[in-house]
Nucleic acid binder design. Sequence first.
DNA 1: CATGAATGAGGGTTCATTCAT
DNA 2: AATGAATGAACCCTCATTCAT
Lengths: 206, 206, 206, 206
Amino acid sequence: MGVKERRALEKQMRRNQILDAARKLLISQGLENISISKISREAQLGVGTIYFYYKNKEEIFIALQEEGLGFLFSAIQQIKRKQLNPAEKLKEVATAYYNFSQNQQEYFNIINYFLSSPRIFFQEEQKKLIDMSGNKILMVIETILLEGVEEGFFLEEDPRKFSILFWGTIHGLIHFKKLEHTTLQNENHQLVYKYSVDKLIQSIQP
Amino acid sequence: MGVKERRALEKQMRRNQILDAARKLLISQGLENISISKISREAQLGVGTIYFYYKNKEEIFIALQEEGLGFLFSAIQQIKRKQLNPAEKLKEVATAYYNFSQNQQEYFNIINYFLSSPRIFFQEEQKKLIDMSGNKILMVIETILLEGVEEGFFLEEDPRKFSILFWGTIHGLIHFKKLEHTTLQNENHQLVYKYSVDKLIQSIQP
Amino acid sequence: MGVKERRALEKQMRRNQILDAARKLLISQGLENISISKISREAQLGVGTIYFYYKNKEEIFIALQEEGLGFLFSAIQQIKRKQLNPAEKLKEVATAYYNFSQNQQEYFNIINYFLSSPRIFFQEEQKKLIDMSGNKILMVIETILLEGVEEGFFLEEDPRKFSILFWGTIHGLIHFKKLEHTTLQNENHQLVYKYSVDKLIQSIQP
Amino acid sequence: MGVKERRALEKQMRRNQILDAARKLLISQGLENISISKISREAQLGVGTIYFYYKNKEEIFIALQEEGLGFLFSAIQQIKRKQLNPAEKLKEVATAYYNFSQNQQEYFNIINYFLSSPRIFFQEEQKKLIDMSGNKILMVIETILLEGVEEGFFLEEDPRKFSILFWGTIHGLIHFKKLEHTTLQNENHQLVYKYSVDKLIQSIQP
DNA sequence: CATGAATGAGGGTTCATTCAT
DNA sequence: AATGAATGAACCCTCATTCAT
């Protein structure tokens, strides 16, 4: 291994060290309470050092978002291989998404932070990453659909669009969890969620 | 008109004046850049005066949210009366929601602020308001559905749940507008949106 | 009763109404959390009205202090009449002072506020009042002493000075209660207090 | 001297610089008029810098209090070594305490601020400091007493308690200096003070 | 590479007081 | 006599970022 490679490796390690600290703070204190100086303290590094490895705070957030998307994807990814019929697989995807939103709330928050934020302009590279992450999730859904269609289990002409619909629905409904104690207080949110997923699946069953 | 009434009226006007300033800032600078001192400057009032009319910043945000929900509702409300078949009405609801999210972006953002925010605990009174606003929107959808069911146009056993599904879907998909230039770059977001709405409607057509 | 008298009476009543509110806040929220607007809310009066009856916040505090001194005095006053020997009476005075400092803490605080405050310049009238209050307390001690001297129970040439010494001692020691958990942690504060009072009394016993 | 040492030294110097500013304000404007922004202006530093060196305002006050206790102690400390009999030493302690209260009024005030303040909860470390400072002062008195007892000059079974009594008395009487123009206007405060100290000393002389 | 001291604008909030009504 | 809206300076504190070492 040459000097260059080692350098690059070390650099990556420092970046990880910083991300470890940021992640710890994200989980323990929530998105809003992360500050660079807190991260530097947690990472046992100088504030300036953080800025050497990340251009600014946003970049760290983006890295955390990537991580979150990674976790989300790996949870969903596994479903593809399971011995289930396509409909059940889709249900599992919905469940996995729901669980992720609840059990890894802060990651879900940070993903939403970028998804809802009105102002952020992504760099080309970051765009690619989000593209990939999003695509990977979509691909899982799409693959399941295609399998279903091939097997005659599903009937759908535009599996890609349906995948987006499917994802959009579960994403939107999870947001409505906040309304559990107001508008939706007479409905059990989980039941609505289940109902919706079933409804969508039925809509493409012959 | 007695002194009391005039006083009350003036008080309401001042509240509006403040809200006007806040709204202006909301639209021009975005949710994240509203500060009390900016509002006071914009409203040509002392900082203390703002606090005389609103307990804190959050209260102003809530007032803006109410306004937003009001606009949203009135846009959707009108559809009920139109001379359209139920399916077309639902499509119009979706379109209205979409248009609202695009044309009154900052209002949409502030609604989302409360919907996505990880931390906010609402007071009982605020809960009621959100409840009402949310319900009003849901009711429009539900009413359209019920009409459709009665007319034999739709077939759906649980119109309430379907309304939530419908709303959740369009809400979620609008969030995905942000992905237009990444994950969804090969799809036209509007087409996906249209496809999804159609799909949902088809799913309850006999 | 003429108009003037009624006016004066009404004025006094309003002043009391305000003082009632201030007292309530003093006891419930402590000296530091009293504000004019809180008082006005509590008293169900306008802020301006408060200023009509009291020149400023300080004046209200002074009134509260007077009240406190009144309570303190009346607690001590009663001891004079009791059927006890002079030494026991002095001990009771010390106990009463101690109890007052603990049970009516906020009154004790406000008295101290004026006693420790570096800056306050009293008006002539206020001076008289404090003079009177202080004197009344001192007089009780002095009277007990004089009785004791007459009866041959005490031997002291300057009862006035001894009264001040006595009062100063118990006052200072009560302040040291704050040190209970630091400097004086190995001593029981009450025992020290008792010891001190006894010691002082012994010093004037033949 | 290495870099680290120099850095540490510089850091200490900055802390001193800030404390200098705070002290200057303490003396010129009094405890109640110290604010962080005033300190920063006086110290020619940014507000943030102050917070870099002191966690909050309280910490600065505590540092000033420590200083005050230091001055007080060193004034009293010297008396121990003087060639005087124990009684005279005690009188000197009282004088030193009195002089401190008058000549370094603001330091006396700040010590009182912590002693009288209704609300403060000390951290463990601060407790230790106050403990130490208080103890050091008490120890001086106690040592003088013990010497006196050994020499047969004093007769006192509980020198510790008497020390506290002694300290409490002079502390309390100094507070009464405020009453010089009201309750105690017919007494010369200094004479009362002297009388009291003498009286206490007599009470333990055989 | 790494540091961490320094910044200063900005955050939200409180409050005694005034004054036109 | 009573009101309460209006003020605005002042409060404490946070923080992303820079830069000399």
